[in-house]
């Protein structure tokens, strides 16, 4: 029967996953069947997707990509590979969102930020000591290449203004607003919704402090605008920004972007 094994169509005369593993590798190898890692033997059927992965071994490049995506729900990978997402602001939200989108295999990412990595970023942003002083665009691109070398990453080290929104972001499926300052959030959201009527915007508002994580949610507030956050808790003197709530909010944004790339518009 025809099976997809490590990304390749393969004709095999096997009835069970263990027989397939016996044929391809050895008994210690991990088996992932249609997105789920299995321990017990079961039957295979026509067109099943299997990854047979040897631990601790770097596979050939053509097998690596399919193995990396083996835990995805089946059939989402190709849709995500076609996805084009622009991330505006590479701080606590943007750096974490970029890494998540890279992990799930979004095919084209645009990373926009004018700033460099500095010590007060490290409490919540996805950078290391070794990145201090480096432009955030470069530091993040470097990491993404290590996480998923199969996606295209474009960077722009530039400050986003009303004048350059259209030029920067046209052609993308989704703009992820990940700025820090409320005036910048408002400027980008307003300009993008006015000038790029076909683009969805996933924005964030309210993730400071250490209130309950359950207050952070995703809301579809307008035709093309989604907001993630508790919608209230701004960063201010006496209320800081810390990794847990910032990453919860980043997770909401990344998940909404994933849903939009799969053509699901409900939150």
């Amino acid at each position: 029967m025809e099976l997809i094994i490590n990304g390749k169509k393969t004709e095999l005369d096997c009835n069970t996953v263990f027989e397939v593993r016996e044929h391809i590798g050895n008994r210690q190898d991990i088996i992932i069947l249609n997105g789920f890692q299995i321990e017990e033997n079961c039957k295979v059927k026509e067109k099943d997707c299997l990854a047979i992965i040897r631990k601790g071994v770097l596979p050939k490049r053509d097998e690596l990509e399919s193995m990396m995506m083996a835990r995805h729900t089946p059939n989402v990978y190709k849709k995500l590979k076609k996805g084009k997402v622009a991330i505006a602001g590479l701080g606590g939200l943007g750096s974490n969102i970029a890494v998540m989108l890279a992990r799930i295999g979004v095919g084209q990412l645009l990373l926009v930020d004018f700033d460099v990595v500095e010590p007060s970023n490290l409490n919540r942003q996805n950078y290391y000591i070794s990145h201090l002083g480096m432009p955030k665009t470069e530091a993040l691109k470097k990491q993404i290449t290590e996480i998923n070398p199969f996606i295209q990453v474009a960077v722009r080290k530039i400050k986003v203004t009303e004048e350059n929104v259209k030029e920067l972001f046209s052609g993308y499926d989704v703009i992820c607003e990940a700025f820090d300052k409320p005036e910048m959030k408002s400027m980008l959201v307003n300009t993008a919704l006015e000038e790029l009527p076909d683009i969805k915007v996933v924005s964030a508002s309210g993730m400071a402090g250490y209130d309950s994580g359950n207050l952070i949610r995703t809301v579809k507030v307008m035709k093309n605008l989604y907001i993630c956050g508790d919608l209230e808790n701004g960063a201010e003197v006496g209320r800081g920004l810390m990794a847990p709530r910032v990453q919860i909010c980043a997770g909401h944004q990344a998940n909404m972007i994933l849903r939009l790339l799969l053509k699901i518009e409900e939150v």
Binding site: G94, P182, K185, S203, A204, S205, G206, M207, V221, V246
Partner: peptide
């Protein structure tokens, strides 16, 4: 009207 109010943080 839908009015979105942005607060700081990111």
């Amino acid at each position: 009207l839908e009015i979105v109010r942005f607060v700081g943080g990111g």
